Simulated scan of single mutants.
Amino acid sequence: MILYFSGTGNSEYVAKKIGKKIGDEVMDLFEKIRNDDFSSMHSERKWVIVVPTYAWRIPRIVQKWMESTSLTGSKDIYFVMTCGGSIGNAGKYLEKLCARKKMNYYGCIGITMPENYIALFSTPTKEKAMQIIEQAEGIIDHAASLIKNGERLPQSGLSFSDKINSGIVNAVFYPVFVHAKKFYTVNSCISCGKCVSVCPLNNIRLENGRPVWGDKCTHCMACICRCPKEAIEYGKHSKDLPRYVCPKSDIIYEKK
């Protein structure tokens, strides 16, 4: 079974493509995470977790869900991480997680996809995003082939910076940067509530027709990137930057 979490569609696209390649069920973890649903899940087929990379590791909200949820049936588990450039030393922490869950860690692979982290980086135009995704197709297919054949995903070489980024930097990044204090709306907001519905942590509510953010933000960028009027900004950094939602999801896969 393939389980995925996705803020702006990259991991959704990869998960569904792998699912199609290996003929396996694909399930979105959004509702389970949003509702703190830690009920046991069962699959006789190998588990495949597809998630974005947050500060060179899997998102903490996914980590929490996995730590709290019993995955029964198959003990074999793979991880596929979409990223803007590198997954660092994420595999080290995933292997430890699997050991605690008494599961067989079959490796982790990074898939470079278009950058969505508009809070700190520049997001690509649709044309550039399509080019990046096209370049990723071969790696996605290779990962799917390895998973289908029950082979381990390859471990790439690690640099000193990889170890630092997934360790010290990750530990500092969350408390210092991951908050919603810089989100705000501009006059083009139409009070549609899209930002409320796409937040995986129920962290946004409407007050007098405008979104108000709470203190549980995970920086998935779903609210700012999926706003139909581009009415949400993040400080000064997001101004004039294109909002990113995976442009191939709507082309290849029918949306829910």
Rank of each mutant, 00 (worst) to 15 (best):
G209H: 09
M27A: 13
V198T: 15
L241E: 07
P114D: 01
I2S: 07
N104G: 13
I33H: 01
V178Q: 07
E95V: 11
L120M: 06
P154K: 06
Y105I: 07
K46H: 04
W47R: 02
Q63C: 03
I2A: 10
L71N: 11
G193Q: 12
T123E: 08
G193Y: 05
K148Y: 02
G7A: 10
H237I: 10
P175C: 04
K181F: 05
L158K: 15
K182I: 06
I49K: 00
V176W: 03
K148H: 08
V50W: 04
M130D: 12
I147Q: 07
L206I: 14
V172C: 11
F38W: 08
K102N: 15
I61E: 07
F38D: 05
C225A: 14
D141E: 14
S166E: 04
C83A: 12
E31D: 14
V196N: 14
A90H: 12
I168D: 00
K148M: 06
S39V: 08
C225H: 11
N149P: 00
F183V: 03
Q131R: 08
L146N: 03
D76F: 04
Y106N: 15
G23R: 08
N187M: 06
V178W: 10
I139L: 15
S6D: 05
C227T: 09
Y105K: 04
K32L: 02
K148A: 10
Y253V: 02
K17L: 10
E254R: 15
P52T: 13
I147Y: 01
I251A: 14
G138E: 11
C192H: 10
G9K: 05
E233C: 15
I111G: 06
K163P: 02
F38S: 07
V48N: 01
L158A: 13
A55W: 01
N10I: 05
C83S: 15
K126N: 06
E31M: 05
I118S: 03
R152F: 10
P154Y: 12
K102I: 06
K194M: 12
E44F: 05
I164V: 13
G138N: 13
K92W: 09
V176S: 12
T72V: 10
C192M: 09
T72K: 11
T53I: 04
G193D: 13
Y105G: 00
W47N: 01
I49T: 04
T82N: 05
P124W: 04
E127P: 09
V51S: 10
L153T: 11
C199G: 11
S188W: 05
P228I: 11
Y54G: 09
I251W: 02
R226V: 09
T8P: 10
T125H: 11
P175F: 03
N187F: 00
P211I: 05
